[in-house]
Design a protein around this nucleic acid. Sequence first.
RNA 1: GGUCCUGUGGAGCAGUUGGAGUGCUCGCCGCCCUGUCAAGGCGGAGGUCGCGGGUUCAAGUCCCGUCAGGACCGCCA
Length: 453
Amino acid sequence: MVAPRGSRSPTPLWGRVAIDRGGNTVQRILSHQLPSHLGETVRIAGWVHRRRLLKSVAFLIVRDAAGLTQVVVTDPAVRTQVEALTEETVVEVTGRVVANESAPAGVELTEPRVRPLGAPAVPPPFDLYRPALTASLPTQLDHAPTALRHPTRSAALRISAAAVAGFRAALDARDFVEIHTPKIVGSSTESGANVFTLDYFGRPGYLAQSPQFYKQLMVGVFERVYEVGPVFRAEPHDTVRHLAQYTSLDAELGFVADHRDVMAVLRNTLAGMLATVADRAGAALGTLGVTPPAVPAEIPAVHFTEALKIAGAPADEPDLAPAHERALGEWARRQHGSEFLYVTGYPMAKRPFYTHPDPARPAYSNGFDLLFRGLELVTGGQRLHRYDDYLAALAERGEPVEPYAGYVDAFRHGMPPHGGFAIGLERFVARLTGAANVREVTAFPRDLHRLTP
RNA sequence: GGUCCUGUGGAGCAGUUGGAGUGCUCGCCGCCCUGUCAAGGCGGAGGUCGCGGGUUCAAGUCCCGUCAGGACCGCCA
């Protein structure tokens, strides 16, 4: 039995086993398993990808989870049946596996029996069987349930799944514990943040815009934690890199010397993610023509003040604009041959109150961003870990302690020096695959204008 | 929230300084076709040019409003 490319485990059964009178297996198999069943009668099932009706022969192309199967139809009765099948109709086909050089995959099914598993499908408003999906992004998003069936769209989602698996594997290997924090919260994480409000049994509640506080608290339990989960931002950003809901890959670890320990963990995590993508989503990478970049043993890092100079920004600029980040991405590739670049020491004024300052230059932070091909992919840093520092930080910003009491109080009970980071999954996949818009790599994106499907 | 751009059959586009019948590619329907590979050939159906108003002898084209979508920026992952 042939395992799918990139799979390390034996192929599981995709249907119940059955043996026909001739002793052949007629359990359902997937398209990529056909070569190991030559001469046998097998059963496949999937969606009608395309029909090609010629005079003396008709071809029925069936798409399943693993790929495409060509079914050759010569029997007039079966042909009549096939002529009535629209694209995307779900069918089951039993037939003999025959090697044939003129078949696209080298094998095909002959003498088929075709059984529709549902009514003829209503075809989507675009052609899923073409190499490229030519519908505009809004059209694709409006028809996401079918648009995502196109190999290029599903490939991005497979890469996304592999990236998450790699994130977990990389951190599991370093004794991190996966946690699950509430997505409905009683107060916003960071002052001034736009959060979605909801009615929580008559009280105001909010959709969590970050697991930040909870993952820090859980450092006090496990030392090292991570979470894969949705975060919600009610900010009216209307760009190709913003979503109202996205998947945040969060990690936090205790007993760090400073942010550089966090950066080292992030570097290894990214390498693990890309390795798993190559391992488990090799076919998807091939579909999209993507070669994953190498992660340097040490990702180049520049201080914020240096970054401003490189980007040609005024020295008193408080933050990096997107154009500056693009320039820095170019610089990193040119000077260091790296698709990744750390920018460290962002001004304290531009970071949240829990950010740890640089002891040597207190106006600057021990916080960092990671740019991936010129796009902000990760924010991280060292956090405050002393109760008194939290009180001082809030006071300095003119913020009351009360809304944060449950969080800040925990620091009275002993918290180690710690830090962490959050990777934007959709941005990671978009940059990796070359997608111009994060919506292209999100199954059902939520943004300023889109709440359905 | 600011700036700019775009709305033309099911999909993707063209339509030159306003000027007779809105065109192309793909899909769809019908017929034809030695095995197709994004099949090919012939024929056909399908559009109040987003909506409302205005200018003009004449508006897909110009102006105003409105709705929808997109890009950039602010901000952020």
